[in-house]
Each structure stands twice: as structure tokens, then as C-alpha cells.
Design a binder for these strands. Structure first.
Length: 318
DNA sequence: TGCCAGGCGGGGT
DNA sequence: ACCCCGCATGGC
């Protein structure tokens, strides 16, 4: 499938917006190459946005699609929303600067904004993260995209991948899904796809989902539900406390494991989800033992090491 | 090699 | 409301 250029627009960036950080975090090479960011806007109609830096305070957004599109305004709005160019993080910065765990990373990560993704894709990310390391989880998602995703060509031969649709997942066998090294998570992804396909869940924006809607699917628990809502709708008030973060909280703030969530909520308030996300960036998503060691050594800031696979360098390795 | 790794549900108390 | 276990898989 080949897509054609529809239209372009230049937008201004606010202060403290880092395009490079925003585009880099937890991304694949088919979405970011160091200068051009691709964001699929509509998976079915195949609306794709390409975003480049014109200068430090300006971005150029170009829309691509398979055929002519009339109301491009809403698509530009969706791109800006996905990029988070209009979100105001001032109040969060006030907490970030002073926090014992995260203040060290403030300087290098300030300007990062979370890229929104579709709920369906957010759930795939969350499910792949279950009971697995960062590396293993993102390997699974890489395989899902490469083996099952839909490849599209954008004009001059560049290709990108749209995540497989719920319909596609519904129509393939569990064994086919398991080739993505998903293990028992394959069953959860299947059930999740069925929920989307049968319209129990859909991407309709009118509907605002909450945790309960998602945890009603077997295999989606509190953590995955909250993470998915954070990634798809910036529901930063939700604390996605997994074993990894719980242990870190209990060590750093000296509270029992069972009080970790309470502690996080009292520190971050409406910013729990964003703070959790940034914690993974600050520690390069190291597995727990390594992460705790990094904290002991006071190395709580991304390494930006060229040879290391981290959330911020993942796009170089896929 | 055996066991850990950003969960989860089911079954026990 | 807790606690505990098994569950696929890859990586060390």
C-alpha cells in the first residue's frame, strides 16, 4: 500500500518542548530515525503523520493518506494532541525538580512529553510488559509489528508499519500469535482483540474508558489497565505500580512494599503516571536488580549510551 | 542450568 | 483483604 502526501503545516513549539526526547522514547525505527517522526493517526483510513523539526521552536507536520482527505483540520489537531505540544507541565516540574528519586533526571529529560498512542496499541504494549523485562517485552511488540503489522509505503520508498488490527488478531490462530514469543500473553491479546472487534471497546473518542472497563477482560489487571490509559489518554493521575516500581519506591522512600502505591500517590498526586513513566527513562528501564544498584550509586539519569538498548535508544536497534 | 523478569487470576486462608 | 502458586518465554 502506497500513501500520498495530502498537506503540510508548520506549528510553533512552546518553551521546554524537546522534539528529540519526545520522539525517541519507547519508539521503533519504523516510527523514528533520528530526525523524522511517524505517527499513525488513523489505522483504518491510513492517515499517517510525518513530523520534522524545522528549527528549535518549529515543527513541520505532513499528512499522508491513500486518497484525498477533506477535513484535515481534525487530523492536525490529533497530531498536536499526540505530540503533547499543548500540555502544561509546570506544576509537574515543580515536583520533579525537588523529588529525591527523579530530580537528578530533570535537567536531561525536561522537555520530554509522552506521545499518545491508540488504546489498542497501548494495550498491546502493556500486555507485552507483563511479567517480563523491558527488553523481553519490547522484543515481543517488535515481533507483533514485524510479523503481523501492516506495511505501508510513504511516497519516496520509506516504509512504516501499522500495528495489526484487532480484526487481524481475531482471525489468526493462537499458534500464529505465539510466534511473537508471547507465551501465555497471546491468550490475553486474543481476548483483547475480540473485545475491540465486537465493539465492547472501540477507539471512539466520545467514550471515556476507565480501569474497570479494561480489567473486565481476562488477563488485563490493574497495572496493564492503568498503563494503557496513561499511554492512550495521558491519565497521569493513575499510579501504574508494578513490582519493579513498588520495590524502588519502598527502597527510596523507606516504606513497606504494601504502602508503595500510597506513597507514590501522596508524592505525585495527579502526576503519578507521568512520574512512573519518567522513572523508567531515568533508569534506562534496567531490570530491578540493576535499577536498585543504579539508585545506590546515584546514577538516576539516562546514560544515552550509543551501544545500550534503553527506552530512549530503542529506535536505533529495531 | 535454573531462575529471574514492569502481572494475572484462581484458590486458599 | 490478604497470601501463594502456576503460568510461557528469553536471557543470563
Amino acid at each position: 500500500m502506497k500513501l500520498h502526501r495530502i498537506t503540510s503545516r508548520i506549528i510553533n513549539l512552546p518553551e521546554d518542548y524537546s522534539f528529540k526526547l519526545t520522539a525517541s522514547a519507547y519508539n521503533f525505527s519504523w516510527y523514528f530515525n533520528g530526525s523524522e517522526l511517524i505517527i499513525p493517526i488513523d489505522y483504518e483510513e491510513l492517515i499517517i503523520a510525518s513530523i520534522r523539526e524545522v528549527d528549535l521552536r518549529k515543527l513541520k507536520i505532513t499528512l499522508f493518506s491513500k486518497r484525498k482527505v477533506n477535513h484535515t483540520e481534525t487530523f492536525f489537531e490529533e497530531v498536536e494532541d499526540a505530540l503533547g505540544v499543548n500540555e502544561n507541565l509546570k506544576l509537574f516540574y515543580d515536583l520533579w525538580m525537588r523529588d529525591p528519586l527523579l530530580s537528578q533526571s530533570y535537567k536531561s529529560l525536561k522537555g520530554f512529553h509522552l506521545r499518545k498512542t491508540k488504546l489498542w496499541n497501548a494495550l498491546l504494549i502493556g500486555i507485552c510488559q507483563q511479567n517480563a523485562s523491558f527488553r523481553q517485552g519490547w522484543n515481543m511488540l517488535t515481533l507483533i509489528h514485524k510479523k503481523l503489522g501492516f506495511r505501508v509505503e510513504i511516497e519516496d520508498g520509506k516504509t512504516t508499519i501499522i500495528p495489526p488490527s484487532p480484526e487481524k488478531i481475531v482471525n489468526i490462530s493462537i499458534n500464529e500469535l505465539k510466534k511473537c514469543k508471547l507465551g501465555y500473553r497471546a491468550e490475553t491479546i486474543k481476548r483483547c482483540a475480540e473485545a475491540f472487534y465486537s465493539n465492547t471497546l472501540s477507539e471512539e473518542k466520545l467514550q471515556k474508558y476507565d480501569e474497570k472497563d479494561l480489567t473486565s477482560i481476562k488477563g488485563i489487571g490493574k497495572y496493564t489497565a492503568r498503563l494503557a490509559l496513561i499511554l492512550s489518554d495521558r491519565r497521569y493521575e493513575l499510579p501504574p505500580i508494578d513490582r519493579w516500581l513498588a520495590k524502588i519506591i519502598s527502597e527510596v522512600y523507606n516504606v513497606p512494599l504494601g504502602k508503595a502505591e500510597e506513597e507514590w500517590v501522596s508524592r505525585w498526586g495527579r502526576w503519578c503516571g507521568l512520574a512512573a513513566f519518567i522513572t523508567t527513562l531515568a533508569l534506562d528501564a534496567e531490570p530491578l536488580t540493576q535499577a536498585l544498584k543504579r539508585i545506590q550509586e546515584g546514577k538516576i539519569t539516562p546514560t544515552f549510551n550509543e551501544n545500550k538498548i534503553t527506552p530512549l535508544t530503542l529506535w536505533k536497534f529495531t
